[in-house]
Design a binder for these strands. Sequence first.
DNA 1: ATTCAGTCCTTGGAGAGCTG
DNA 2: CAGCTCTCCAAGGACTGAAT
Length: 288
Amino acid sequence: MIRICDWRRRHMAEKFELPYYQQVNADLVYYYSGSERCAPGHSYGPAVRHYYLIHYVRSGHGIFRASGKEHTLRAGQIFLITPGEVTYYQADLDDPWHYSWVAFDGMEAASCLRQVDLTTDSPVMTLTRHVNILSSFDMLEDAKKLSGGRDLRLTGGVYIFLSCLLEAAAGELAHSESKPRELYVKAAIEFMEKNFSRRMSIEELASYIGLNRSYLCAIFKEVTQQSPQQYLIRYRMERACELLENVSLSVGDISRSVGYDDPLVFSKMFTKLKGLSPRDYRKQAGRT
DNA sequence: ATTCAGTCCTTGGAGAGCTG
DNA sequence: CAGCTCTCCAAGGACTGAAT
């Protein structure tokens, strides 16, 4: 869901307990963006942000400190600042960086960033392949000049920027030499955990990853000691157990919520894995 | 609504072969 | 040679219709 934002609403939101994006139910919210050719030694922090902030190094060098680690960065690299984290960054004295940034937040922000493996523990990403990151920054700059539809265009710009990152990450994945199997499996798990609530085939999963189905099954089992199907079923049943605690949902409702159109098939699978039927599970949990 | 049986479809895994 | 695709086939999961 896209909602229009402006500084007034954000200001009002800060008066309440929930973050702004949660109050407006927004998946992604644009905060600000820009770019700068830094002077030698120019620095920021140590400081804390309450939103996500991504910098893309266009040229030059600099350092980024977060979570007790220092990263030396060069052109083509990205660094992420996560909400609540104390960070510090500084341009190189001899070859100061020129970078662009975009700040955003929202309920889907963390999920999107996880998909490209940008997290608090892994805040740096190197882009070795050509991507449209620069044009997405240009688009954000153009959007700022609009008189009508500015906020919508800026929010769209955040989506485009993140899609460029995903595109880049996919390119890195395809060309990565560091344990690509684990990366494929990780991507497969993320796909399953996002789509478990609908009908999904392993063929579709393999197609999404860009691998042959048989080969994906082989490496998935090699890494996780279980097949993709087994992983998906177990994940669905764990989610079903959580849903069974909500007595207002029927077994049929839960069945459909975890990707089984047919409650009978769901019940059979649940009984097989958990040793008792969904109804008995709910009874045993004392939630009848 | 539930159960059952028959059928169809999907999956996992093995092995051969291709490619850079 | 590693990484991957393609093909094949057995097993079992999913679906459907009939019976209760």
